[in-house]
Every structure is written in structure tokens, then in C-alpha cells.
Design a binder for these strands. Structure first.
Lengths: 236, 236
DNA sequence: CCACCATTCAAACAACTGTTTTAAACGTAC
DNA sequence: GTACGTTTAAAACAGTTGTTTGAATGGTGG
């Protein structure tokens, strides 16, 4: 359980490092993370968490207020740095475009999502890969608290992607841009999360979970989907 | 709670009608369905179910063996007819193709999924729309029992789609066909389930849940994505 | 050394969980 | 009428849940 050395090439002076946790709190967060992903919030008991973390039961309510607050902390610990990286990617792209050193096309915008997601999936501590799956649980389980935090603190992130994609697809209405972003992010999100419907049927020929392989297949798919000609409804 | 009249134009002689439930059992299934979707399996207590269904607590263990078996029954009640409809679509398409009355292209194959999914979403009882969301819960919550049932009884359904898509995309390797099917089904599945990531951030410009609107936008996206030129990895 | 703080610990709290049991009522078919 | 499958009712079962309590512990600064 050695903390990985921060390897970001640019320290990003304005980055809020976020709260620091004691060793006990960190052990709780790590244990809870894995269990929440595997079993879900409701099916994971505090006793199982503290047992896996080798800490006392009361430590959870001491360091975090409640089980729900613990879940929020587990989520926020990974989400905030990731979202900041997404913003940095968008900033970098727009700076390059402004300087005439890059073109703002669909692929460039999508790579601003793919690169942070790929970095997460390859996080050597394994926590990043867990987080992606945790995120998809949040999506379908619809946790009220997390949803409020996301829309309050990170709504502008979505706005940034929407704006950039709109510039890359000027021939589409803003309505259609929103749909393309919705669909495109959906594929990538669930691809990285490993939410494989075919696997449910025991018939997934998609080989395992190599993040680079995911990128290789998902990027052409999404770029083509997003760049599709204007939607006309095919005969049902 | 009036049972909708079966409106299938073709009775499909070989269709297994599945188990019939008493009125009490049906009321339990209906109440459980809504609660499982909204709260999840673990967070839904039998007492809440029986209270919503206005039946006695013991009725659950009488009609279904256990809570887990009830969940399976809730899932199977909607899944089986839907999967049979998918098979019927594939049969019909292949018959048409064999007779020279249709071409086996990507869109035709995908419509064999879209039409049943659309019918579900428009189910006037509302149960179909609930089921799609329940299905996505099963996907991320990874219920062992349901997974076993699906791979045992319905694995061939996936094989059928894979085969058909492979014929529609003869220039792709079977590996790439599997990836395209995985990604394409993923978009459609989560689109119909309403798993909207942008909504999590409170910034979904995607107007509501009109199933026809979903089809209108998702079909061109998926067809384009699936028909994308062979994947080469763009520079990270 | 003592006081102070944060932390840990075992124990207990009331509430809720799925499930079972016992009993009594209901309608229908033989 | 008697038997049977169904349903209701109320109660109890043994476990587990999140949370709280109060005492014990540990190290740091005065």
C-alpha cells in the first residue's frame, strides 16, 4: 500500500490538493472503495470495511461522519483530481487551437476525455480502475448526495465539453451536439468501466480489460458516431 | 392495474407463454419491480414491497421462495418475452434476406435490437420502461443468479447478433466485429435505460425520455460507429 | 510531571433485516 | 360438508445494520 509518487509533469499551480487523510482514514477509504465497487453501497457493511482495513469499527464514524459521508469521500478523493485533469486537457487544446498549433476536430475533443480516463485505468495502485466502476454505480444507483455535488461543483466541466464539441461540429444544431456528446461519452464511459452486456450472456469475445485496447477500438467508433451525417429517422 | 391486452400481431406458435401468476403474486411483482429499479435489491425490504403491494408479508415467501428468487422472477417476467421478440426479429430479417427482399446491412441488424427495445419503452403499462432500467442495474450490480440464467438460456441470442453483424461487416475481423457489437449495444442499451452521464452533472440538454427521439438520434450514431473504417490507434 | 488533545477500543444501543411459524379465514371443487 | 389451495394475520426468530457511548491509550507541548 505504498502511495504512488505524483508524476504529473506540470504541478498546475492553481490545483487544490484536496483534503489530506490520516493513515487510518486512508486505509478505510481504500478498503471501502474496493467493497463499494464489488458489492455496492447498501450491501457493504461498516464491519466488513473496518475488518478489511484492520481498524476499529468506530473509526469510520470518527473520521467520517457517517456511512454516507464515507461514500462521498471515497468518490470525491478520486473524482476531483480526474475532473481537474479533464479541464487541463480542454485548456491545453483550446490554447493550442488559439495558437494555430492544432485543429479543433471531434477526435481532439474526445481525446480530452480519453487521456484522463486512460490514465485512470492504468493507475498502478489500481484505485483508478476501481473508481471508474464506482462511477458507473453512482450513475445507475443515483445517489442524491453525489449528484448534488457533481452538479454544483462540476457542471461547468460538461459545459466546456459541449462548447468544444459544438465548435468541432458547426454543421449540427446545439440540440444534436448535446445528443452526440451524450451518446459518445456514454460509450466511452461504459467501455472503460467494463460494463459489458455481452459478458452478461457469457459470450463476450471482447478480450479482457486492456485499457489501450479499449482506446484503440472505442475512439474510431465514437469519432465516426459523432461525425455521422444529420439524423434522419430510418423507417421502423 | 388492468392487464393490457396482448397486442402481438403474430401469436408465434412456438412461444413459451411462461408462468402465470395469481393476482397477489402479480401485485407483488409489480410493486417489487418499481422498488428494485428505484432503490436497488439490497435497499428494498420485503416489508416495503408488501406494504406497497397491499399484501401480507408472508405472501412473498409463499409465492416465491425467497427475496432473491423474487428478484429473478421480476427480471425473468419481462426479459423472456423481450428476448423472444429479438429472436423473432433476427429470424424475420434473415428470412427476408434469403428471399432477396432485404439487404443485410448494419442498420438492418441493429433495428432487430432497436424495435424490441422501442416497444419495451413504449409499453403502456410502464413496466417495460422500468425493466430497461432494472436491466442496467443487473449489469453493474452483477447478480450472480441472473448472470447464470442469461448465459445458460440466452447465450445463443448474442451469438445470433454477432453472426448477423459479421455478415453485414465482412471486411472486419471477427475480433473487430465483437468490439463493434459490444460498443454499439452499449450505446443503445444505456440510451434506452436513460443512463445519462450529463444528467448527473445537471447539464443534460438531451430532452427527456421520448423513446422515438432516442431512436432518431441513436441509430445514425450507432450505424456510423459500427461502419467506421478499420481501427488504427490515434496518437495519445 | 501534568494537562491536553486526538485517536483507539470494546461494548452496547435500538432498529431493521429475511424468514418461519402458528392460526385463522376465505373461496371453490369434489 | 369436507377437503384443499390460497390468503391474511400476528408474532417471533436469530442476525445484522449504522451509530453512540465512555473509558482507555498514546504522544506532544507547557
Amino acid at each position: 500500500m505504498v502511495e504512488p509518487v505524483k508524476s504529473s509533469p506540470l504541478p498546475a499551480a492553481d490545483a487544490d490538493p484536496g483534503p489530506k487523510y490520516s493513515e487510518t482514514a486512508t486505509r478505510i477509504l481504500d478498503a471501502a472503495e474496493g467493497l463499494f465497487v464489488e458489492l455496492g453501497l447498501e450491501a457493504t457493511s461498516l464491519r466488513l470495511i473496518t475488518q478489511n482495513a484492520a481498524v476499529n469499527l468506530a473509526a469510520v464514524n470518527y473520521h467520517f461522519r457517517s456511512k454516507d459521508a464515507l461514500f462521498e469521500a471515497v468518490f470525491a478523493r478520486r473524482f476531483a483530481p480526474w475532473a481537474r485533469e479533464c479541464l487541463r486537457e480542454l485548456d491545453a487544446l483550446e490554447a493550442k487551437v488559439a495558437a494555430g498549433k492544432a485543429v479543433l476536430d471531434v477526435e481532439a475533443v474526445m481525446m480530452c476525455y480519453v487521456r484522463p480516463a486512460l490514465a485512470l485505468s492504468k493507475d498502478p495502485s489500481g484505485g483508478g480502475a476501481l473508481f471508474v466502476r464506482l462511477f458507473s454505480r453512482v450513475l445507475v444507483e443515483n445517489h442524491r448526495q453525489v449528484r448534488e455535488t457533481l452538479s454544483r461543483d462540476w457542471g461547468h466541466l460538461v459545459a466546456r465539453y459541449t462548447l468544444a464539441l459544438g465548435r468541432a461540429l458547426p454543421q449540427l444544431s446545439s440540440d444534436e451536439v448535446a445528443w452526440r456528446l451524450h451518446l459518445g461519452l456514454s460509450v466511452m464511459f461504459h467501455a472503460f468501466a467494463g460494463n459489458d452486456i455481452l459478458k452478461l450472456f457469457g459470450r463476450s469475445a471482447v478480450s479482457a480489460r486492456d485499457p489501450d485496447l479499449i482506446v484503440k477500438h472505442v475512439v474510431p467508433f465514437v469519432v465516426a458516431g459523432m461525425s455521422a451525417p444529420n439524423g434522419r429517422h430510418p423507417a421502423a
